[in-house]
Design a protein around this nucleic acid. Structure first.
Lengths: 352, 352
DNA sequence: CGTCCAGTTGATACTCTTCAAGCGGCGTGG
DNA sequence: CCACGCCGCTTGAAGAGTATCAACTGGACG
């Protein structure tokens, strides 16, 4: 049963929310001010925190400031509650590391949805869920089972990166590996004509930038944020120590790098001979495998058309035309730019 | 200074050859009959053996039979000398594991060339030369530096495979890894339309088939001989033991698998956006890097047009037309089907 | 209200694949 | 011994599939 901490100075709201969450089978802890909120967060270690932005004394920004710097609490999803639809406030909160926000008064379904989504993503980090065919990340997640919390919390050098931020680019020397708490990152190569091909995608629970360190060379690819991200930086030395000193860890790493090679080989086969139609289909599948977002139970793609084309390895226009085809065939649906996958199975096994 | 053992019952020929080789700075040991030839081979450990096929007593076939089963000598290049141009005899010799043959009377240049080529190939095995960008094989060659001779000679389960022989195919369970003494092997994937893409190429000094074993899965690719090959089979268990028990070995393996991933990524970029012209150029470069054969100092490609097209990832006809282009531009030359690379550098850095 | 940007659609050019046919060398069987 | 078929390689002609250039739309933002 998940534990939610609710910090708000409005008693009526506290009771109301506590009731709703209680009915949805959450354990609810409440606090009436920022100070007691921080204390309870440290003592109870909730799975998620809801916190009013505006409070007398220590306000929401103060709370997140403190909690995001404490090794025991900095990973806990933090959702802001704001009084009005004030963009500036919301932005400030997100900039300080909040994972979401709710504008009061909020609908019950919004509340429950927001909480549920965040908890799911947090689970991916905490439980190190193994995605099938995810490749190397899986391994590192397994490493974590024993070690991550030491690794991460001893360092706890967490940063927020905005969309379009470049983590590193080709030719630079690596100093850290990155561990993704939230957000989406792409890693890509550029050819002489300036065309981009996305080779890897990362989201919560993944590690980024280990290949250059393992080979002891400069980066050969560029990594860029495509959805605002929270990342933990782990120094090169810590990482190498982990890899070099544990035989089991090394062995698993070998298996998974090996797996990665196979994955890339399959993609090679695809790019070499398949029709655009098939390439687009497998690009879509790749993305929903890496970024398992859902909308009403259906997989949904929220990256830009441009990035999707770069995954597929084709011109953007060509890719869009194929999306049209898929839409008329009811394989996908397009809502506000997002691609909702209606028939995943048929896409996976396209005949022509 | 290289040591050559010459076994022949014709004293005049022995002296003649010994003179020639002596002038070319080889140390020559001679034996007048099969029996003393075997004894000297075991005692002196020559770098190469020249042996007459027809001799009284123990003949050439007997000599190779014995030496190819002895752990200390089975790797030594063995060249047959035959009296007439008798195809049947030559075939028998090659089938028994000879690495080449010379028909008497032979020209001095033929003799020296044959010896030199074989010694070079042998060097690649013995010295574990590290080719730049060769990927995983490099690692295994380094492993060998300390261990291969134990590994190989304790097993010494050597087999000869003819062109077109399939070592393993997709779906089969792996039992061995293969170490290449001589010959050429391709590893490929096939898509739903039956089109083939060559993902890896192997030649002397390379190991084959480790990925499936490392991941503990069935083969996902097919490996086929494209030029008659001598292979040593190393049992799965031996291989795993080596990988699992030596930390340094594991570490190097990690670096090189990692390198392999990068290599495949580069190829992805190529296939995605480059023109056929560029793809063919980099296909040619790939092949001469993997199979560093030379003809008069120039790199030469001796695999079939079909296989080359499968490396490039294009239709055979399209690839051939591009070869025409390269030929008129004096980048390559075609002699008896072989492609001789005249301007390697220009091919590597093609502008369009 | 103008600007900018992502997404979309149309028209056109061109690269590459495909189908088909021809050529020369080699081995096999009559 | 020759004829035949097979295989690897090459060339020609036609057509499909994509990329490219250009223009348009609607929404976000200052």
């Amino acid at each position: 049963m998940k534990k939610v901490l609710l910090i708000d100075d409005d008693e009526a709201l506290r009771e109301n929310v506590a009731d709703i969450l209680g009915l949805s089978n959450y354990t609810v802890i409440t606090a009436g001010c920022g100070k007691s909120g921080v204390e309870k967060a440290l003592k109870e270690r909730p799975d998620l925190i809801l916190c009013d932005a505006v409070m007398p004394g220590l306000d929401g920004y103060g709370v997140i400031h403190i909690l995001s710097r404490h090794p025991d609490t900095f990973l806990i999803p933090f959702i802001f509650l704001t009084g009005e639809n004030n963009l500036a406030d919301i932005r400030k909160g997100m900039q300080m590391g909040a994972d979401g926000y709710l504008v009061k008064p909020f609908k019950e379904t919004d509340l429950l949805n927001t909480i549920e989504i965040r908890l799911k993503k947090y689970d991916r980090i905490k439980k190190n869920i193994v995605h099938d065919k995810k490749g190397i990340s899986t391994f590192l997640q397994q490493v974590n089972e024993s070690d991550r919390f030491n690794l991460v919390s001893s360092q706890r050098d967490m940063h927020l990166y905005k969309k379009k931020h470049v983590l590193y680019s080709e030719g630079q020397r690596p100093f850290n590996i990155y561990f993704v708490i939230s957000g989406k990152i792409k890693e890509y190569l550029i050819n002489e004509d300036g065309k981009e091909l996305i080779t890897n995608m990362y989201t919560e629970g993944d590690f980024i930038g280990y290949t250059a360190i393992l080979e002891n060379i400069n980066y050969t690819e560029t990594a860029q944020v495509i959805e605002d991200a929270k990342l933990v930086l782990i120094p090169k030395s810590d990482f190498l120590q982990l890899i070099n000193n544990d035989r089991q860890v090394a062995r698993q790493f070998i298996s998974l790098l090996s797996h990665n090679v196979r994955e890339k080989e399959e993609r090679l086969l695809n790019l070499a001979y398949n029709s655009l139609r098939k390439k687009v289909a497998s690009g879509i599948i790749d993305v929903i495998d890496k970024f398992p977002d859902k909308k009403e139970g259906k997989p949904v793609i929220e990256i830009s058309r441009e990035d999707l084309a770069h995954v597929v390895g084709s011109a953007q226009e060509s890719m869009i035309r194929t999306l049209r085809e898929f839409k008329t065939e009811k394989l996908i649906e397009i809502m506000e730019g997002s691609i909702i996958v209606l028939n995943e199975n048929k896409l996976r096994h396209l005949l022509y």
